[in-house]
């Protein structure tokens, strides 16, 4: 089956160094990150530690520091960095002509915990 991509609109909606949220009815909320060097990533918006909303953390390099207890999570892999262990699912994302697209299957496929 061909992949379907959800169009989330223009990249200008998210300032570099920030993230935006995408609630999914019946599923997990997703956080879309825009790093300081202009890259975009999407992750389930739940810290592997105690479900902190990663979208609200400080973004630096290609990681985000969780606002609740400062775990550092890689935006590329969703893995906890440093000494911590855990992983949050990542969502395939692409940018085309200045718009953000997420892989639909992955967006709706995240079961709410």
């Amino acid at each position: 089956m061909e992949a379907t991509w959800l169009d989330l609109g223009p990249i200008t909606q998210i300032e570099a160094g920030m993230a935006a949220t995408l609630p999914v009815i019946g599923g997990e909320e997703i956080a879309v990150f825009h790093t300081m060097r202009g890259e975009f990533y999407a992750l389930v918006n739940k810290c592997p530690h105690r479900q902190g909303p990663l979208s609200q953390g400080i973004v630096h390099g290609d990681s985000v520091t969780c606002p609740l207890h400062n775990w550092r999570i890689s935006l590329k892999s969703g893995k906890a960095l440093g000494g911590d262990e855990g992983c949050v699912p990542t969502i395939p994302l692409k940018i085309d002509c200045g718009r953000i697209y997420l892989l639909r299957e992955s967006v709706v496929g995240q079961k709410a915990a």
Partner: peptide, 12 residues
Amino acid sequence: DLHSHLATVVPA
């Protein structure tokens, strides 16, 4: 932008 969601996904 800090307070709103990008969108809300309603699965088919």
